[in-house]
Design a protein around this nucleic acid. Structure first.
Lengths: 218, 218
DNA sequence: TATTTTATTTAGATTAATCTAAAAATATCG
DNA sequence: CGATATTTTTAGATTAATCTAAATAAAATA
């Protein structure tokens, strides 16, 4: 098994390379892991030694397939524990991240597979992020940022790009939690803010910044 | 908070001082934590510095009240997680120790209190060991070893003194799991083994060694 | 009680993860 | 394209937890 710390680096690299196919830089990793670049370099050497990443000095890193596997497994655990915390223990979606951050390092494949079954094999966590299945497969849904929608388009809130407690609490206040149906009523040219109808009832305006971080299924 | 390692030392000291009021020795701790005496000495200095133990060179240690609190809290977490693993995830009583050993270090009072409620505030773990309540109070039941019972006496299996998987599996094979009613039918003088009736049906003989490790409520 | 044995502590190293400061490589821009 | 800025790496320390080997204290025993 890998150490707690190694797992956190793998996860960071994975998240940083989601979307873009580019290699991830030392500084990016340092920022994400709250460490200094020098520490990251040391760890990268170690992870490369273990064949978890492809590392060329000064050129950034990518995960090897072994590395991806390890990372995906941690993410699977994180998200399943989040579902547990919300569905079974009654936590709110903005309260679970830090606890899941600890729970994701518990080592037992049996445990996590039984937890998965206990929870009814959920496909998404409380923030709408997909949960990898036990073979590591992730079913990505086609999600669109509200900021990219056109007037008249409608969709269902199904994910977020920003997981901070402040943001999630705001969404709750706005009535924009997962499953909420929205219709774009107007795009305001002046500041890019967006007016929308929530659940066929409330009309609301949200800033472009907020809109960028809400994902919907059309 | 205390480190993972510090917590393990506190727990070890607590378990070693259960029952006897004597100070716990460096070597005892070394054995329980699978470390060497020299490492223990270092850690004892650190724990004493933090006022978690009373430590006098060469004289062994006792926990301070702060230390007891910390230890009991870890034990509470361990046992609640064990209940979760058995009751909710379908693990067997001999499979949960190692996983709970990891889970007990997850830091969140809210989490553990919600888990407690979710489980219906159990008073004992799957091995019959009492679960401290959220204030740290432990309700000890008056338990007697089968080896101390007399012919004709009856009782209900309610705990064990040996938590190894081998032993627990044996008890299952023998039909001596928690809740089983037994009556002592004969004490065999030759080797100290004990003949008993299980659930008013089966008659069985168990060795003194096994009998010493099964606890019953009369 | 003196001697031997056992237990404990100290001294000095090691490993993992981190840091700061300096050096080296890469990227940017005038 | 070359000077400057930025990024990354190296060098050398630090901290927590551990170890082995040697020294010291306590306990057992003859």
């Amino acid at each position: 098994m890998h150490s707690f710390t190694e797992e956190n680096y793998l996860k960071a690299i994975y998240h940083l390379s989601e979307g873009n196919t580019m290699a991830v830089s030392t500084n990016q990793i340092a920022e994400m892991t709250n460490t200094k670049a020098a520490s990251v370099t040391d760890m990268l050497k170690k992870l490369a030694e273990k064949k978890l990443i492809n590392y060329i000095k000064y050129q950034g890193v990518t995960l090897t397939s072994t590395g991806v596997n390890a990372a995906v497994n941690i993410i699977r655990k994180h998200r399943l524990w989040e579902v547990f915390l919300v569905e079974k223990l009654g936590f709110k979606w903005d309260e679970v991240h830090d606890i899941a951050e600890e729970l994701e390092h518990i080592n037992s494949e049996t445990l996590i597979n039984r937890l998965d079954d206990f929870l009814g094999n959920p496909v998404a966590d409380p923030h709408g992020d997909p949960i990898p299945d036990r073979s590591g497969l992730i079913k990505h849904k086609k999600l669109v940022k509200i900021s990219e929608m056109q007037t008249g388009e409608s969709g269902t809130v199904s994910g977020v790009n920003e997981h901070s407690s402040v943001f999630l609490k705001l969404l709750e206040k706005l009535g924009l939690t997962l499953g909420t149906k929205i219709i774009i009523s107007e795009l305001i040219e002046f500041d890019g803010s967006i007016m929308l109808t929530i659940d066929q009832k409330t009309e609301r305006t949200i800033s472009r910044e907020v809109a960028k971080n809400i994902l919907v299924i059309l």
